[in-house]
Nucleic acid binder design. Structure first.
Lengths: 150, 150
DNA sequence: CTTACAGTTTACGTAAACGTTAGGTATTTA
DNA sequence: TAAATACCTAACGTTTACGTAAACTGTAAG
């Protein structure tokens, strides 16, 4: 049931399947270009829960890493950590499972609608930037002409 | 050169072209579903600069409104107000115009690249949510079966 | 004209999302 | 085994993006 995973030169034992690779907190932080404090903070908020070594240090599996990536993705779209927490289905404990699932389901489908709107907005934003660039270009050409033949 | 625009029952005079319609701060806040404080805050940061009535009250034209919408759109994609300020080309004063334009142009094109990445990420996020919904659905069906024939 | 409501500035308050520092423990390396 | 890192918790600090309250002014309605 347990498989080895090298860490700090020793062999650690964690759950099967997750055992291909694991990382320390600073390794992961380096990979994802965030601070270790950020990762610990997400753990405080209940967004991730990595295993620990016998010496109490955090070990992150590829599953943990995937979840972190998902969180960062959410953030890049302006979702708050609380929202992301709900999206992952972390929230609403103390409910019977059926109710919990229904609520998560409803939440997910409103988020899907939001995502469709975001697509449209992303297009608008792109057009906005393109038109700004166009104006800049024209202004630049005008300035160059003035320079060449004053 | 000046055209009338009704506001507070009186006729105000503001620049041509912008004169189709104008709103007070609370009207605009209502339309965009944000607080008046938020609008004033964006003005403090230099993101918008509405005209004033002779009595010093702010009047917003459709151009102002469009800019506000753009700001809110940027926010929804997780851009900070400072970034948005740059995107609008509000920043980098105290530079000669040519340099200013070049900088804005460069900034805009990096943002365009970012937008392309965002599209991919948006798709990933959608897939993630869809797969979560799928899991929820399956779990729900399993629970229902147990309920029907225990 | 006055009453009531909206708008103005100024300034302090606050929640979210971390940064930073202190004091202590684990792990790695010389 | 000692010294140098890396990690841990706990707590306070900081920045961003506003909220809120005070004290005053402009505008609309009776």
């Amino acid at each position: 049931m347990l498989r080895p995973c090298r860490l700090y030169g020793k062999i650690m034992y964690i759950e099967k399947q997750k055992s291909k690779e694991c990382w320390t907190i600073s390794e992961l932080a380096g990979q994802l270009d965030i601070s270790t404090r950020t990762i610990r903070f997400y753990e405080e908020k209940g967004l991730i829960s990595p295993e620990r070594t016998p010496g109490n240090q955090r070990i992150y599996t590829s599953r943990n890493r995937a979840r972190l990536k998902l969180i960062l993705r959410g953030k890049r779209f302006g979702f708050s950590l609380d929202e992301i927490s709900e999206m992952i289905g972390m929230a609403n404990a103390d409910m019977d499972e059926m109710e919990q699932i229904k609520k998560s389901f409803a939440f997910a489908s409103t988020k899907l609608k939001e995502i469709k709107l975001r697509r449209v907005e992303l297009d608008l934003l792109e057009q906005e930037i393109l038109s700004t660039m166009d104006k800049l270009k024209k202004r630049m050409e005008k300035l160059k002409k003035q320079e060449d033949s004053p």
